[in-house]
């Protein structure tokens, strides 16, 4: 590829965008599942109580992490989408320009 030449496989980039959007949806759904599940409802007493508190805190933190991961995946997809749109818009404008007499 020559210097300054740009080559983009639109199909592969679109596939990647779809993958990251799918990842974002799944990660968000799992985050919700973890946040809404009642963890450590299986025990009482000192040992169970301690683990209940810990499991709840871990679930809350993991849910937040997964939500962040999903949000980041959505951002990756948005950025790629925006980049492709810019290329496609520029391409259309150049084509229009060359048709002019």
């Amino acid at each position: 590829m020559a210097d300054g030449e740009m080559r983009v496989d639109i199909g592969d980039v679109r596939d990647t965008i779809a993958f990251y959007r799918g990842f974002a949806a799944v990660s968000g759904a799992v985050a919700t599942d973890l946040a809404t599940h009642e963890f450590a409802s299986w025990g009482d007493g000192a040992d169970g109580g301690l683990l209940r508190e810990r499991f709840s805190a871990m679930a809350r933190r993991m849910s937040e992490n997964l939500r962040t991961n999903g949000s980041d995946a959505e951002t990756v997809a948005d950025n790629l989408d925006r980049g492709l749109s810019l290329i496609e818009t520029a391409d259309a404008q150049i084509a229009l320009f060359w048709r002019m007499p």
Binding site: M1, M6, R7, V8, D9, G11, D12, V13, D15, T16, S27, N65, T68, N69, D72, A73, T75, V76, N79, L80, G83
Partner: peptide, 25 residues
């Protein structure tokens, strides 16, 4: 890898973001 091959001039910031996201996951 597919993304870097499909879009060879994809920005460093986006490439880093993809890598960091994978590491966190």
């Amino acid at each position: 890898v597919l993304l870097r091959n499909a879009w060879t001039q994809v920005g460093d910031s986006l490439g880093s973001m993809v890598t960091a996201h994978g590491d966190r996951v």
